[in-house]
């Protein structure tokens, strides 16, 4: 019997398992940075962690605040600029990158820009940042989703997945052959994309989640793999690593924010400064 885990931990661990030894990895902010640290500590010691702000081969000692946080590590191997971080991606040197999802359609196209009308949005999301560049030219792209939504039609296409499905991405001539999103990891399961149609299907389901739970979020008839398996539960070593490295990440965003804020208030109170 292994330790109990949170769904945030399961997600972080599932993401970490996608990183192979010797991969050149572009990490995004948030959950992937913890996954990167976990992979490097436990199963991919030669992975090269990089960020688009120009940090190459860094090893975070604490969870970075953002994608330019060199203060989370004690030095790193190469300080290049953002332009070069992207041109090396274009040239094919990046094996894997991770992107968060705002809206996603069945072919893995993403919207992280706006909900509603782009010009007068109901909700203005952050935007592309480096997402569209990375998913276009990284060899593999793993998508992560917490709080995003599945939709039939995106309000805005920020980052190209398999476009209209089938061989549309490969035949467009705009992207390296065989590139595109490889997996989508949510708190319910792991989705992959059909080899031929490029439509996403449920490949693995997390323990104690039902197929019905997974279908609930999805407005189209979700395909389920014939060989649907249960996600391998986290090992104690994986859970221990996350809790030591990033206890707030283990809690998930809202609980961590709640506790963090209470802690700030407490400190202010102790100083008699509220």
């Amino acid at each position: 019997m292994t330790k109990k885990y949170t769904l945030d931990e399961l997600l972080i661990i599932a993401v970490a398992r996608e990183i192979k030894d010797y991969d050149n990895v572009i990490l995004g902010v948030g959950l992937p940075t913890t996954s990167g640290a976990l992979a490097k500590a436990l199963h991919a010691p030669q992975a090269n962690l990089m960020m688009e702000a120009g940090m190459i081969d860094f090893e975070p000692l604490i969870p970075p605040n953002h994608i330019a946080d060199v203060m989370a590590c004690k030095g790193y191997a190469c300080a290049t600029d953002l332009f070069t971080a992207f041109t090396m991606t274009y040239r094919g040197f990046v094996d894997i990158c991770f992107l968060g999802v705002g809206q996603i359609d069945k072919f893995g196209n993403l919207n992280t820009t706006a909900i509603g009308d782009y010009y007068k949005p109901d909700l203005r999301l952050p935007g592309s940042g480096g997402a569209a560049d990375f998913i276009s030219y990284s060899q593999r792209t793993v998508l992560t989703m917490r709080g995003g939504e599945f939709v039939e039609d995106l309000d805005y296409v920020t980052s190209p997945g398999y476009l209209g499905g089938g061989d549309e991405r490969d035949s467009s001539g705009l992207f390296p052959q065989g590139s595109g999103p490889t997996k989508l990891i949510t708190q319910k399961g792991i989705f992959e994309f059909d080899h031929k149609t490029k439509e996403m299907f449920l490949a693995e389901i997390h323990p104690r989640i039902t197929v019905e739970d997974a279908r609930k979020d999805i407005p189209w008839e979700l395909n389920i793999s014939d060989k649907l398996t249960e996600t391998k539960p986290p090992s104690d070593a994986e859970i221990n690593f996350i809790r030591n490295f990033a206890p707030a990440a283990a809690m998930g965003r809202s609980l961590a924010a709640e506790v963090g804020f209470a802690n700030l208030l407490k400190e202010l109170e102790e100083r008699g400064k509220t």
Binding site: F86, Y90, V157, L174
Partner: peptide, 9 residues
């Protein structure tokens, strides 16, 4: 990068 042509950007 030419991939941008496939997006709303």
């Amino acid at each position: 990068f030419e991939g941008i042509m496939a997006t709303d950007l």
